[in-house]
């Protein structure tokens, strides 16, 4: 186990009946890295995220977060190790105000990260145009702000690692660019970031390394240039040979 790995999975397997969602997945993200994960629908990206944060248990294999074996650790305890996750479908508390959405995560914040965490949060709130005292119901926000609100919510917990499942889904190009700008800045402060995305322009903009998942397996891994030039990746995912 490498000491500077933020996440590492070893021979991770998961099946749903006859469907193989994870097939001997060995996946590693180093601390401070900004990794993008791509793959066709059903490749197992969201299931891998769910296993990483503890929402799904693995059939076999091991998961390490910052060097700690969390394979059997409950989801809320993994979060307390400094992990934040946003979902594919927005799960901010729609019936609560923006202020409440940004207050609720505060009690479980990782205090040892407070200084850097506060700076990251302040930057994100400013860049996203979110007022932490806004009494508007979250459900009344436009789609992009709702997505940004959920990202800000996990930053309130001062995490060391964020897992974002399609953070720009449904956003306009300029909103996607703004999201990219914020993620790159957060990563520059040392925040390890793993993003599942379909928007290749966004991936090319932010990713340092790209992992391609296909049929529950790590199909390819490398820089953006390597992945886009990879013949088989172009066949299975990018849609051109």
């Amino acid at each position: 186990m490498e000491l500077n790995a933020a996440i590492e999975t070893r021979s991770l397997n998961k099946r749903f009946g006859g469907v193989v969602a994870a097939d001997n997945v060995n996946f590693k993200v180093l601390s401070g890295e900004l990794r993008c994960m791509i793959g066709p629908n059903g490749a197992g990206k969201s299931t891998l995220f769910a296993m990483l944060c503890g929402l799904e248990s693995a059939d076999s294999g091991q998961i390490f977060v910052f060097g700690q074996d969390v394979t059997r650790t409950q989801a809320f305890k993994r979060v307390r190790l400094g992990v934040g996750l946003t979902f594919q479908t927005n799960r901010a508390f729609h019936d609560l105000s923006v202020r409440e959405n940004l207050t609720i995560p505060r009690a479980s914040a990782k205090q040892e990260n407070m200084e850097v965490g506060q700076a990251r949060l302040a930057f994100a709130l400013d860049a996203f145009g979110l007022d932490p005292n806004d009494q508007t119901k979250a459900g009344e926000l436009p789609h992009n702000q709702l997505q940004w609100l959920e990202m800000a919510m996990i930053l309130v917990g001062y995490p060391n690692l964020i897992l974002l499942d399609e953070p720009t889904a449904g956003m306009a190009p300029e909103e996607t660019q703004q999201t990219a700008k914020v993620l790159k800045h957060l990563n520059s402060t040392g925040l390890t970031t793993v993003v599942v995305e379909h928007d290749m322009a966004f991936v090319k903009d932010i990713a340092q390394t790209v992992t391609v998942l296909h049929q529950g397996q790590v199909f390819a891994e490398g820089s953006v240039a390597e992945i886009t030039a990879h013949e088989n990746v172009r066949k299975i995912y990018l849609g051109r040979a």
Binding site: C53, F76, R91, I104
Partner: peptide, 13 residues
Amino acid sequence: EDEVRTELLGYDI
């Protein structure tokens, strides 16, 4: 509002 979201904010629901 959302048990899973709350748990993934670090709370033992």
